[in-house]
Simulated scan of single mutants.
Amino acid sequence: MSDTHVVLYDPFGLIEAELPLDRAPYEALVTAVLAWTDPHLEPRDYEQIALQLTGHARAVAADVRRHAAALPKSDGRGALAEVVLREADGGLSVPLKGTAQCVQNRARLARALYTRLDRLIEPLPAAT
């Protein structure tokens, strides 16, 4: 076996765009985290969960950006997506803390991004 590796150059994220998100486990994690009332975890455990949610939220945000960019400028869903993306960018830029509150904030971000993604990919109702 060789000790070499290949570095992938994909500045536009085209390969990532073709990979579907494995949504179910993260939605289950978000639901569980948001149901917490008084968990007693170690700070490093909170940090690990927050890292998982942060990475996934960034991937969902990238999907939201791609779908919003494909919409016509006159489609209001794109403007709403930009608002959610700005809020997500702000929330994701906050440093992680080893607390339940931090994890729950990341879970709320992921849920908001999924809600916006769903609205971007659902077909508009036909005009009557």
Rank of each mutant, 00 (worst) to 15 (best):
P11W: 00
T128Q: 13
A28Y: 00
Q104E: 10
A69C: 01
T99V: 09
T99E: 04
P72M: 01
P125F: 04
A88N: 13
V83P: 01
R44C: 09
D75E: 14
Y114C: 05
A28R: 01
H40N: 02
A112N: 13
E47N: 09
H67G: 02
A35R: 02
D45I: 12
A57T: 07
A32G: 08
D10K: 05
E47F: 02
L92S: 07
R111Y: 11
C102I: 06
D118K: 06
V83M: 00
A79R: 09
A62H: 04
A62W: 00
A107W: 04
R66S: 05
S74Y: 10
Q52V: 05
A28Q: 10
R66I: 04
G90M: 10
D10I: 00
D3G: 15
A81F: 00
F12C: 03
R119G: 01
A88D: 15
L41M: 12
R66A: 07
A17K: 03
A88R: 14
T37G: 03
T37A: 04
V6Y: 05
A28W: 01
H40M: 06
Y114I: 02
A68F: 06
A59H: 09
A68D: 11
L71M: 04
H67D: 10
I15K: 05
A127K: 12
K97P: 02
A28C: 02
A62E: 07
A35V: 03
T37R: 08
D38R: 14
A70I: 06
T4D: 14
D3T: 12
A57S: 15
P25G: 01
R116T: 01
A28D: 07
L117G: 11
Y9C: 01
L21N: 14
L34F: 03
G78Y: 05
A79L: 08
A24K: 12
G55H: 10
E87G: 10
P25V: 01
V83S: 13
P39K: 05
A110G: 01
V6R: 07
Y46G: 00
